[in-house]
Computed example of a mutant assay.
Amino acid sequence: MTVKICALPLLVSMTLAWQGSAFAEDILVKIGHVSPLSGPSAHMGKDTEDGARMAIDELNAKSVSIGGKKARFELVAEDDGSDPRQATTAAQKLVDAKVNAVIGHMNSGTTIPASKIYNIAGIPQISPSATNPKYTQQGFNTAFRVVANDGQLGGTLGRYAVQVSQAKTIAVIDDRTSYGQGVADEFIKGATGKSRSVTILPRQYTTDKATDFNAILTAIKGKKPDLVFFGGMDAVGGPMLKQMQQLGLDAKFMGGDGICSTELAKLAGDALGESKIVCAEAGGVEDGMKPGLEKFKGEFSKKFGHAVVLNAPYAYDAVMTVVAAMQKAGSAEPAKYLPELAKIHYKGITGNIAFDEHGDIRDGTLTLYTYKGGKRELIAVTR
């Protein structure tokens, strides 16, 4: 008797088993990202999201392996609207989604409250832009940043205002956010350091959503300041410059990285002036790193159809740094790769990335800019 064996079902079964095994070897790595995608700072929030997305796309194109398994990366993006309450809601959503890491938030005022939620969940968080020192002073081993903090940024601007700009009378305005207050506080410390003779006028306050500054600026104008320092974002700084021009308040204007964007020129119009503004970006590359950053900016513009606004390169580097830590640990599980992240040495497009015991970047750079001909122009990169 001849027994016929049908090979097709067996072959299909073996093929499906092999495919199932191969699929089981792949891992999905969820990278959370939070920034303001609505409200006045949406253009800056979208910038950081696009920077993170560019990194995700590149990682997937490279077929990265973690622990011998091919990793597929997914960006899980949330909008915090620059609002602390919305930020904590977004943070909890990412925790519930079981993300492996978080890049964000953009503002200090949203980063700080959200960091508590990520810390409780044990999920590493790298902010590409939050500069308030309090963020990394909470004792959370999950909190990191890839830019210098306000102590460095505000202090440098304060010293520059007195030593270089030769300001004698300075008006200070902040928007009452964690970022705005923090950078203004540090600016004053830098400007009024030992052996400096400078007068700081009574501090003025606005909000991050204000559009009318006439009362504040009129009060300041009567005191004839040489310089106005604003702690806040470009969406407020631009209109403020316009109203300064309308009131005939002829003073230099200074601010931190919140105003130091390509968008400020559009928001301020001809009130931008020539070399009237000095601002500092919490980061920046020295000569040897410039070609890599310029290459990134060109590819970014081609991919998204708009130029880098401010923080996209830092969001990109934050993603690449956390993935480098996962590869070193051989795992995307937060508890397993967190120790590697804390001691990482990663060469990013924005410079060498390593963290101190608090999660602050070591030897962080600052870049001073002014504006000429409607465009941002480099003054110097400093540490």
Rank of each mutant, 00 (worst) to 15 (best):
M1P: 09
A7K: 14
T15F: 15
Q19I: 13
S21A: 11
D26L: 08
K46Y: 13
M54P: 00
S63D: 15
V76M: 11
V76F: 03
D80E: 04
Q86T: 13
D96Q: 10
H105G: 01
T110A: 00
I112L: 10
S115Y: 05
P128Q: 03
S129H: 05
Y135W: 11
N149I: 06
G155I: 09
G158K: 07
I170C: 11
R176E: 10
V183E: 08
A184T: 10
D185G: 08
G190S: 08
S197A: 12
Q204M: 11
K209I: 15
N214S: 13
K221G: 02
K221P: 00
P225Q: 04
D234T: 15
A235F: 13
G237F: 05
L241Y: 04
K252H: 15
G256I: 07
C260Q: 00
A268E: 03
K276R: 15
I277V: 15
A282Q: 12
G284W: 03
D287L: 12
E294Y: 04
K297L: 01
S301G: 13
K303P: 05
V309D: 07
V309P: 03
L310T: 10
N311P: 01
N311F: 14
Y314F: 14
K328E: 12
S331D: 03
L338N: 09
G348T: 05
I353M: 07
I353P: 00
A354L: 03
I361T: 01
I361R: 00
G373W: 08
G373K: 03
